[in-house]
Design a protein around this nucleic acid. Sequence first.
DNA 1: TTTTTAGGTCAGCCATGTTGACATATATTC
DNA 2: GAATATATGTCAACATGGCTGACCTAAAAA
Lengths: 198, 198
Amino acid sequence: MSTAPPAPTGTPPDSAGNPAESAGSAAPAAPDTPPGGVPARSPAETRELVEAIEWLFFAYRDFTSDPDEILHEYGFGRAHHRVIHFVGRHPGITVADLLNILRITKQSLSRVLKELVGQGYIVQKTGTKDRRQRLLYLSDKGMEMERRLAGPQRERVAKALAAAGPEAQKAWCAVLAHLVNEDDRRAVEALISNGYVS
Amino acid sequence: MSTAPPAPTGTPPDSAGNPAESAGSAAPAAPDTPPGGVPARSPAETRELVEAIEWLFFAYRDFTSDPDEILHEYGFGRAHHRVIHFVGRHPGITVADLLNILRITKQSLSRVLKELVGQGYIVQKTGTKDRRQRLLYLSDKGMEMERRLAGPQRERVAKALAAAGPEAQKAWCAVLAHLVNEDDRRAVEALISNGYVS
DNA sequence: TTTTTAGGTCAGCCATGTTGACATATATTC
DNA sequence: GAATATATGTCAACATGGCTGACCTAAAAA
């Protein structure tokens, strides 16, 4: 939980590969840079981009670590967290909607859902309008777990936003929103702003 | 790859759980809010926090989708991408350093590394200072794959940063940096700024 | 009445993580 | 030089959480 990452091998490659050329010297014309809308970024811009990507990797790695530990106590995994989270945010959500959010298969969700229902963290109620639907809700037990899982994660994000200054939150959300596929962006935005907050 | 997420069930919970109360009505005193340093956030602040967290979830989901598709062509998975990425960024990196970055076990890394070396994407060279070490480099083939994987992901991030305005990049990286465990932050920063850029 | 939809279920596969034990070669230290 | 520590690889076994395909039921919709 606390081993520091290294500062690995500051030494340049002594023979195998010099990754300093980007376009096409001997390389077979990189397939994702067609002669139309080529990026045409400066090395400095490229470096900033790569660094931004790497920060995202490391941030996400640690962002998920808090709930992962708590989930372990319950014998659950990340998949359970996602279900608990979205059921908490959208009480009465249907299985189909949950599938669309999580983008996993019915079987994968079924397995997780069965455990959560079986152990009393989630309750199902038959839909009144459409009696085929099984609307999902957190039980009290489920809400308690949800709070435990959300707590440290919220603290982490709150601290990060605070540390980055008052303007950071808007910018942060704007970038994240534009990382989402354009086709989905509006739907995701609606989804997010429709959710309940515990 | 393009199914839109839903706007699920705007209907409030009709019986099972009303998640509108946060502290402790009937709930058994949520275990992660000790009476000392309680967050004490307003409902509006809490909502913003939750929304920021959810944006991160959706952004990361789509952020990883581009390389995932390409990896599939090669018969590889996300684990291979991570290795290719960090070997590309740190030519001559040792196995131990890679383990520290990825935070996985030697066996998990071994499996992936064996495939990448076996299929000629990564080459190993015995260390000169310490001949026990097996320094890792991308082969030409590996560099080509790395470029293919990095391309769409960089485009996505570049577009998102551009769309969020000129100030966004600094704020974005600042928040991400503060999401990383404090103990590791400086080491990660050093690692990131030491890497090579293709 | 027929068809479509929401959901569940079974069987099996794959990718990627885990632990524990052990082997080998090389560095380091006494 | 001998003992120990380190870098790395390897085997066996297992867990989680994805996946596919096939098939079932009940209820809604046509």
